[in-house]
């Protein structure tokens, strides 16, 4: 398998071609915008939470194959999970994408692991996850219209954490 095929696995391209859970939710518990200022890509995430569960999740926006596939697979992975499980998944996903190892609970999301080898594209993959993290925080605080979150700023901190963890 060539390097490009390791990054863009068939399942990734399939999700990019036919993203799941694209669209909006009404009503929603929280609406969260995420932006990647370095490329201008934008994503809007809608969550409906009920009794500690992610009842439904949708997204809209535009971006590259990696950001679309990552958002598609993320919404699939969190639907029906508890909020605590979703939060744990965020940590595992960020760890994987920064090359810190793959937790088995990631399941199908492991096809995105190859992106960790393409440093320039890590933020494309984490955009939806950074938005999810912010959305869950906003929901916990009772905010429905969450302020926009910037993946550039968040991911820079995560990347430093990853380096610290690897070296320390």
């Amino acid at each position: 398998m060539g390097f490009l095929e390791q990054v863009y696995r068939d399942a990734v391209l399939e999700h990019a071609r036919s993203p799941r859970n694209r669209g909006t939710l009404d009503p929603y518990t929280v609406r969260q915008e995420g932006i990647n200022p370095s490329c201008g890509d934008e994503l809007v995430l809608y969550l409906r939470l009920q009794d500690g569960l992610v009842d439904d999740a949708r997204f809209e926006g535009h971006g590259c194959a990696i950001s679309q596939a990552s958002a598609s697979m993320m919404t699939q992975a969190i639907k029906g999970r508890t909020v605590d499980e979703a939060e744990a998944l965020i940590g595992h996903f960020k760890a994987m994408i920064h090359g810190k190892g793959v937790d088995p609970s990631l399941g199908d999301l492991q096809v995105l692991e190859g992106i960790s080898k393409l440093h320039a594209r890590v933020k494309c993959a984490t955009l939806s996850w950074v938005a999810l993290d912010a959305a869950l925080g906003a929901a916990a605080a009772g905010t429905a219209e969450a302020p926009q979150v910037d993946v550039d700023a968040v991911d820079a901190v995560d990347a430093v954490d990853a380096i610290d963890a690897a070296s320390g």
């Binding site: 490329c39 590259c64 194959a65 990696i66 320039a120």
Partner: peptide, 13 residues
């Protein structure tokens, strides 16, 4: 049909 970032990555490799 291809996002410029995907073009750039495919060329980068």
């Amino acid at each position: 049909g291809v996002h410029p970032h995907d073009v750039a990555s495919a060329l980068d490799v």
